[in-house]
Simulated assay, not measured.
Amino acid sequence: MLHVGQALPPGTPISTEATLRVLVWNIFKQQRADWMSVLQNFGKHAHLVLLQEAQTTPELIHFATSNYLAADQVPAFVLPQHPSGVMTLAAAHPVYCCPLREREPLLRLAKSALITAYPLPDDSMLMVVNIHAVNFSLGIDVYSKQLGPIGEQILHHQGPVIMAGDFNAWSRQRINALYRFAREMGLREVRFTDDHRRKAFGRPLDFVFYRDMNVSEASVLVTQASDHNPLLVEFQTTKPERL
């Protein structure tokens, strides 16, 4: 865990200003046209790009290495050609990296999560959780089990946190479990005024949660380049005043 000193030596801050731009997107294994233009238009100005269902195709690798200092992936499963899973692109090298996997109980496929940490200009450490939650399961035991190790790390982290991705929160049980988890972790939910997030059974699937920061802008980009719409959030990393 990050707090017990397994971190690498502190490096360059992920942002040199008090603004942090984050793009969150289930990229649908790059199966649709125009995914690259969406990434180029909206991703290249972001300090962090949190992708789910990212396949390590040559095109994506070229985009990542051309625009970002670091690209970390946790393959959930290996397709015939390229591994697919969550991928975090960052404008700075992480000083901590923890991959997590949870197997789907019905399909026996895995879903992945990745915890990384980056220095901020004020010498605090930003913890970033990129998650693709288990989708096909009866009840919420496996869903909650996947959140468990993530919660353990967030609870021990002193400093800002971003937890985002495709949470597959399509049932009342799941959304309740997710909100309960967020409350226990002291995380707030980013609200979108024009909410065009992908929904299933009337509930959004993609979320951004945060702690010890302020949200200055939040938008959902409507596109046909995936079966999910990307979320773009701009944070102010100066610590908010306690109410």
Rank of each mutant, 00 (worst) to 15 (best):
G85C: 01
L126G: 02
S137P: 04
A117R: 03
L100K: 08
S137R: 04
L69R: 12
L69A: 12
L50P: 02
M87W: 02
L69W: 09
L109E: 10
L107H: 11
Y118T: 00
C98A: 11
H93S: 15
T88Q: 01
P119M: 02
Q55A: 15
L50G: 02
V134D: 00
K111S: 08
D72V: 02
F77T: 07
T116A: 01
V134I: 15
F136G: 12
S124F: 06
N130S: 11
A64M: 03
E104N: 10
Y68N: 01
Y96R: 02
E53K: 08
A110M: 08
S66Q: 13
V78S: 14
L107M: 05
S84F: 09
F136Q: 07
H93Y: 15
L69Q: 14
H132L: 05
N135V: 07
V86C: 03
T116R: 02
D122E: 03
K111C: 08
D123N: 14
P83R: 12
R103V: 14
A70R: 05
E53H: 09
L79M: 15
N67L: 14
N130D: 08
L138I: 13
V129C: 02
D72A: 11
A64F: 07
H93V: 13
P121N: 11
F136D: 11
Q52L: 05
P119E: 11
Q73C: 01
L89C: 09
A54M: 08
D123R: 14
C98E: 12
T88W: 00
I115H: 00
G85R: 05
N130Q: 10
S84Q: 13
Q52D: 04
F77Q: 07
V95Y: 05
L69S: 11
P75N: 10
A54C: 06
L107C: 11
H62A: 14
V49N: 03
S66M: 15
L79S: 15
R108F: 06
Q55N: 13
I131T: 04
L138Y: 12
A92N: 09
H62G: 14
A64G: 06
A91N: 07
P80V: 09
R108L: 14
N130F: 06
P119C: 08
K111W: 02
P58W: 03
V74P: 00
I131Q: 01
A117H: 01
D122P: 00
S124W: 00
L50C: 00
P58H: 07
Q73V: 01
R108M: 04
E59Q: 10
